[in-house]
Each structure stands twice: as C-alpha cells, then as structure tokens.
Amino acid sequence: MAETAANIMNVTDKPFVWTRPVAPGLHGTPGAPGVTALWRENLAFATLTVRRGQEAALALAAAREHAVSLPDGPFAAQGKGHQGKGFVCFGTGPGRWLACSEEATDLAGDLAATLGSTATVTAQDDAYVAFDLSGPCVPELLAKLVAIDLDPTVFPAGSVAVTSTAHMGLMLWKLDADRVRLLVGTSLAASFSRTLAASALEYGFRLEAGRGTGRG
C-alpha cells in the first residue's frame, strides 16, 4: 500500500502497522527531507523536586556542585556532572526540574549524592524517548503538534514547554535555533512516531533510529 499520510494512520501494512513505530528511513516527499528525527533512547533522565523550604539550599548546592543555576521557569540550564559529564536541567514546574544527560550514566545517583539532602531525585532514564528534530520544516511541523506560540521572539533557544499533542504528554525543548528535542513517554513512543510521521510526510521525513526502535 502506498505510503501516504492517510494510510500511515490507518493501515496494517508495513512499515506503518498500527501499534508499531514508524520504521527508520526516508518517508513521504522524496528528496532532501524537510524534517529529520533522530529517535534516541540512550539519554539519562532524572526528576529533581525541591524539599519544602530548601529552595535556597538547593540552589546553592546546585551551583556549588554542578555549576548550574536551576532555572525558575520553563528554560534549560547547563550543569556539570561529576566525572566531567555534563547534563542539562530544565524547569517543569515550580521547584521541579528534569535533568537530562547525553551520557547514559547513573545521573539520578550522581544528583542524589550531591543534592539529595535538599531535593528528591528520581531516576527516569527509561521513562522517556527523545526525538531530536532538525530540518527547514520543523517550525511548520511543530505548528501541527502543539498549541504553543513557538515564534523565536517568544520561544527562544533554551526554552522548554511541557505540553501535550494528540492526547499524548510531550516535552519540547528548543536545543538551539535549528533543533528541537521532543520527549514522550516510552509507552507512547510508537503512537507518537506515527503522529510525527503523518504530520511530516509532506515535507519529506527522515527517521533515524538511535539505539532502540520502541516496543516491538
């Protein structure tokens, strides 16, 4: 069956089996892809929640131990991990952050060791799948996914949004002027990949699988 936006959502033929993730490769309009998504399952995550009344102490500890100024809003801030491994902390709510590291290390363990007396640290390494988006049509694609004004004047690089798309929770992190990282719950990764593909086919959509390809 032809690979169209209509049947990507509704067929049982490969590569778009419902319940299955979209297969890696180039889909939709041929030529240079307008959107490239790198499916990543090798990032480390941990949630950080401040203990009651420990805001100042946590900020101090984070600055001292990780040279990071914990953002007080939906923004990302770069921190230094132990053993020289970097991580990024972004605000997900008042007194709540999600830390994300490119290296799949014991991020939660490291943070608990340094910040555990002022914050609760919870490992979430397996909770999220990341899609790193790049390409000239990313803004048009994102307009189909989220009801948030992403104009660079309103949502500059380093901005973060916790939101939802198509009844799926979604975290959106603008890495830099051209790239966006989307985080979705691992159980929803396959469904999300189909939503992503159906919206991006018209631009030409290239999916690059990182380590994993989802559940089955």
Binding site: P74, G93, P94, A147, I148, V162, T163, S164
Partner: peptide, 11 residues
C-alpha cells in the same frame, strides 16, 4: 503562571 498561556484542553 509557570508555563505561560496555554489552551484549556491542557487543564
């Protein structure tokens, strides 16, 4: 107050 203006369907 934290996220900025959002559609009511998020709430």
């Amino acid at each position: 107050p934290y996220c900025g203006p959002r559609d009511s369907s998020e709430f």
